[in-house]
Write a protein that binds this DNA or RNA. Structure first.
Lengths: 232, 232
DNA sequence: CGGGTTCTTGACTAGTTTCAAGCAAAGTGG
DNA sequence: CCACTTTGCTTGAAACTAGTCAAGAACCCG
């Protein structure tokens, strides 16, 4: 998986990444990789598959904070902090690159460029959550759904996980609802309505962005964001 | 301002911080310190006063992403990224410590402990936004307001900006509404209702948490978070 | 072939927004 | 120093968005 969206690394960096790397693991869909309140001994990079971060209220209401795609760091917050503030769950079967959390310190100590990349990824993560907060706080239901589709489509597109105007979304509508702060029933109605406008199609987990311009108009969105990213 | 909530620094670190530091500035309330889409040459640390980060939709709807209190970094995202993804505005008169953005690289390069602290602050920032997203996405109006009061009170308390159970909140109800994703009118009604429960009082920008337990119960919240933090 | 998800839809309800109006406090300018 | 404007707070009534409840259909799994 050599994408030009990843920046080039120096030989010594690659060497460190190799040594930093602890191993690879597979996790089945539904696996909880990291739990809120716990101190995980590992850090991960998502190599393939989808995952998501979420928080829950005592009574069970769940807010999905973000979806994680290949290249995303998992558990960084927990390694800088003491305990994780959120839970991470695999949405599909997932391949992970595992790191030892203690070695993060070595990284900061000896590999400033990589440390910078880590900060970059953390910063990018916050940017994504900011964008979600804007959507959930200010957009109405239809706009929100349209926004989320565009957001996911753009990220997938960067990772070459799209085929033309189509993208595979492995989550259920419940996942969308929990991400958007909407009820399942209403999320469904909005999706149906969006399909009727002709902006998208939606069959069997395949989302087809038929009319991106229209979808953007519906989302009340202008944002575009395609910057190169580091790979760790 | 020597608080024990800040960690101790090594002499060489203090020296670098001094050299890293570019100067101090004052900004009046309402000043836009950093604009979305722009590349600011500076990074800031908030030394005193309140500020807030926000994003807007094309039609003017505004989502406040977080409030910034003394010790918080401003513009970190923009310095790691190319351009800022949000706007930062002073809520009160504000004292800032300014840094040259380019020197952030020197920091990562020569001061891994400080770089780690920067990552820590970035990570903490994301945690705060996560918490807000949970609130805006899942809590209903009354719970949200209660949550936000508790959140601000705790942060102020850590910074010793509270007096007993009272805290000065320099924002207007419009700011609260824009943070919570509620209309101004409804925010006001909810605040009135909260006062009636006896959980809080609210006079002239002074919020008095009369019954923290009750407020927590209303917020459907358990979260507490008082960890030591680095000062940069 | 059940039994369990996920999706779909409709009817009803409730939480929130919108609209509107009034009031108090704080500026502003003549 | 007094209109006059502006800003922020407060409240009520009406409208509407989204939630809740309920039930059926489609699909998958064992």
């Amino acid at each position: 998986m050599k994408l030009r969206i990843f920046r080039n690394f120096e030989p010594h960096e690659l060497e460190f990444i190799k040594s930093f790397k602890n191993g690879e693991e597979w996790a089945e869909p539904g696996t909880t990789m990291i739990s809120e309140g716990q101190t995980s001994p590992h850090l991960y990079t998502l190599l393939s598959g989808w995952a998501f971060r979420y928080k829950m209220l005592p009574d069970g209401r769940r807010q999905i904070l973000s979806f994680l795609l290949p290249g995303d760091f998992i558990g960084l917050q927990g390694s800088v902090f003491a305990e994780m503030q959120h839970t991470v769950e695999a949405l599909t079967k997932v391949r992970l690159c595992t790191f030892q959390r203690q070695r993060l310190w070595d990284l900061f100590n000896g590999y400033p460029d990589l440390a910078y990349d880590v900060a970059w990824l953390a910063s990018r993560g916050e940017g994504i959550v900011d964008e979600h907060l804007l959507a959930v706080g200010q957009r109405r239901a239809t706009e929100r759904v349209a926004y989320l589709i565009l957001h996911l489509f753009e990220r997938c597109s960067t990772l070459q996980m799209t085929v033309g105007t189509r993208m595979h979304f492995p989550g259920s509508q419940t996942h969308l609802a929990d991400m958007l702060g909407l009820s399942l029933a209403h999320t469904n109605k909005v999706i149906r309505a969006l399909i009727k406008t002709g902006a998208i199609r939606w069959d069997e987990n395949i989302v087809d962005v038929r009319d991106e311009g229209l979808l953007r108009k519906i989302a009340a969105s202008d944002q575009t964001d395609r910057r190169p990213r580091p790979l760790i």
